[in-house]
Design a protein around this nucleic acid. Sequence first.
DNA 1: AATTATTTTAATCAATTGATTAAAAAACTT
DNA 2: AAGTTTTTTAATCAATTGATTAAAATAATT
Lengths: 203, 203
Amino acid sequence: MNQKAGDKDISTEERIMEAARVVFTRKGFAATRTRDIAEEAGINLALLNYYFRSKEKLFAQIMQEKVQLMFGLVFPIVTDESLSIEQKIEKIANGYIDLLLQNPDLPIFVLSEVRNNPERFAQSLNIAEVMASSSLVKQLQERRPDIHPYQLMTSIMGMLVFPFVSKPILFPGNDEQTDVMFAMLMEERKKLIPQWIDAVLNC
Amino acid sequence: MNQKAGDKDISTEERIMEAARVVFTRKGFAATRTRDIAEEAGINLALLNYYFRSKEKLFAQIMQEKVQLMFGLVFPIVTDESLSIEQKIEKIANGYIDLLLQNPDLPIFVLSEVRNNPERFAQSLNIAEVMASSSLVKQLQERRPDIHPYQLMTSIMGMLVFPFVSKPILFPGNDEQTDVMFAMLMEERKKLIPQWIDAVLNC
DNA sequence: AATTATTTTAATCAATTGATTAAAAAACTT
DNA sequence: AAGTTTTTTAATCAATTGATTAAAATAATT
C-alpha cells in the first residue's frame, strides 16, 4: 500500500482528478486556476504538476471523461436494431434526464469548451457519421422519409438539454426547494418528450 | 468633428466596442485578454482602459447588449394579446432563427457567462415572472391546462437554440458549403417547429 | 537498521496580464 | 499662431499564474 496523505484511502491522484472535475466543469478551462484545483483537492500545487505534468494534460483527461459521459449514452441506443423508434426515444429521454440531473452543468461545459477549441475535437467526434448509419435513421427514413434525421435529433436533444443549460437563468435559485421543483419538472419531462415526439411522428 | 485615427469615420470607442463584441462572444470573458481586443480593434492597449476603465466594465456593456439581443425578441411576442398561440410560436421561430443565423454563438456565450457568474444576473433577469403573467401562458392555460408552460417554452427554446450551440460538434466544418447547408436546414426549421408544436398542442 | 525510491512541500521563476503613467501627437479654441 | 484640451502611444508596474526545483518527509526494500 501507498497511503500517506489525508482522509480516506483514495489516492492523491484521484483526489486531484475529482477536484479537477468539480472546478473545470463549474468554471471552464480558462477561468480555472491550477491553484483552485489544488485547494479544492487539499494538496500542494506542485503535486498537480507532479502527477499530471500540466494544466492542459489534466484538462484533456477530464474533458475526455465528460465527452464520453455526454455522448456515450446515445450511441448504443440509436444503433440498437431491436428497439423501435418509440422505444429508442423513451430510453434516450430517461437516460439523459437522469444523467443530467446528476451532472447539471455537463452540457454547458462540453458545448462551450468545444466551441472554444473546435479544431481539438473536430476529428475525434464525428457524430454525424455514426448517426447517419444508425438504426434510428434507417427506421425514420422508412417511417417518415420527409423528416430530415438532423431535424428530429436536434429537436429531441434540444428539448432534453435546454432546461439544464438555461437553469441558471430560468431557475435562478440555489436552494433546496428550487432544486426539488426542478427535479419534479424533469421527471414529468421524461414522459412528456416521448409523447410529444410521437405526436410529431404521427402528424 | 473629431476624427483622427484609422480607417472609416467610426469612433475609436465604437471600434473598441465592436472588437470586444467579436472577441468576448467568441472566447468568453475569462479566455479573452484585453490585448486580444486591442489588436482586433487595431488600437493601443492603453486606449481600452482610457475609454472603458477596465476589462470588467467593457464586458458589462457587451454582456448587457447580448442579453438584450437574446431575450428582447421573445417578450414583445409572448405578451402581445392580439396574437394566437400559433401566431406567437411562428413569430418566435422566425425571429429567433434569423437572429441566431446572424449571431451563431450568442446563446452559448450568454448561457455560459451567466453560469460562470449567476449572482450577477440573478435579479436583472427574472424571466420566470414576466413569463408567468404573459398572454401566451394565459392562452395555454385555457387551451391545454394539462401542459405546464415551462415544459412548452423550454421545448420551443431548446428546439430553436440547440442546433446553434451544438453546431461546432454536429457541423464541425468552417467552410462556405457547410454554412450554406446549415442555413438551409435552419430555414426548413422555421416552418417545422411551428408545425411540430401544433401537433403537440393538438395531441 | 540502513538504503533506496516515492511522495510532498516551500520557495521561487518566468511569462502573462490588467492597468497606470508620463509624454507625445493631434484636434480644438481663442 | 499660440495656447488648451483631447486622444494616442511607449514604457512600465504590480499581481497573477503555470510550472520548476531542491530539499524534506514518508514509504518501500534490502
